[in-house]
């Protein structure tokens, strides 16, 4: 099996090149389909279900999801090698939750590592640590979402409690195998009071090693997709936070940690 890792199959719904705001340098993001969580603000609702589905995009039906091998994905990813070489960029796995297809994710990361390009994941780490452990040898950057410290509220807005997430955060950041950063999507009405932000920052401060904390401003760019999927967007009426408010959140976080805090990816 180990030798056949290029033939491992998985399900993706998009590949985006020239991504410059996630991870180091110019990167290609592969979006894997399927997620453990159901975050109400999710800007990629078409990523949540593993099943291949149909979404209405600009009045036309579009099939979301296709099955591909690691090798097929890498053919596209490696097209931008000239730009990775110049910037230390490479492959980023996102989702959905890439751990939903952890074997496929592991083999993609391995293939990228073999090809000599850097690797990153955007993940919420809601998974057995034994799966995560298999990825770490091939991973340069783990960008991990921590959305709330209160488990009940976490469950209310994402569908799952947070104990496993926080536990995995400790293990990953303590593994010494990858650069670990915390990302906090700041959602008005969910986690954006100074106290809630401070609680997350305090938690990060206690982790063994955190490179950076990213505060990601809420945006509504995914809203139309809910209609396209025939689903209801339950955060209707919430506006993106103004820049000044984000600065206040940043200050709140900085008041309890020495870790660098930045706004945006």
């Amino acid at each position: 099996m180990a030798d056949n890792y290029l033939q491992t199959k998985g399900r993706i719904f998009d590949i985006q090149r020239y991504s410059i705001h996630d991870g180091n340098g110019i990167r290609t993001i592969v979006f894997l389909k399927g997620c453990f969580l159901r975050c109400r603000w999710c800007c990629n609702p078409e990523s949540q279900r593993y099943d291949i589905e149909t979404m209405i995009v600009q009045g036309k039906e579009k099939v979301i999801g296709r099955d591909v091998t690691v090798q097929e994905v890498m053919e596209t990813v490696l097209k931008d090698r000239p730009y990775y070489r110049r910037t230390g960029g490479g492959l980023t796995l996102s989702g959905g939750e890439m751990l939903f297809q952890w074997e496929f994710a592991r083999d993609l990361l391995r293939a990228a590592r073999e090809a000599g390009i850097t690797t990153a994941v955007e993940s919420t780490a809601f998974s057995d640590y034994s799966h995560i452990e298999e990825l770490l040898p091939y991973l340069d950057q783990y960008l991990m979402d921590i959305k709330h410290i209160d488990s009940a509220k976490h469950k209310e807005f994402t569908g799952v409690p947070n104990e496993k997430i926080l536990e995995n955060a400790r293990k990953i950041s303590g593994s010494g195998l990858t650069e670990y950063s915390v990302r906090v999507p700041t959602i008005p009405g969910f986690n954006d009071t100074p106290e809630e932000i401070r609680a997350i920052a305090r938690f990060a401060e206690q982790l063994p090693s955190v490179k950076r904390i990213h505060l990601l401003p809420y945006h509504r760019l995914g809203q139309d997709k809910y209609d396209g999927l025939g689903r209801k967007y339950t955060l209707e009426g919430i506006a993106p936070p103004p820049a000044a408010k984000m600065q206040m959140r940043k200050k709140a976080a900085e008041s309890v940690t020495r870790i660098e805090v930045v706004i945006g990816g």
Partner: peptide, 22 residues
């Protein structure tokens, strides 16, 4: 938005260099 911040400029310049490498 593609050129915001130092990082935006860095990546922009790298894209030019990547094209010129070819």
């Amino acid at each position: 938005s593609a050129l915001t911040g130092e990082k935006g400029l860095d990546n922009f310049v790298s894209m030019i260099r990547g094209f010129f490498d070819q």
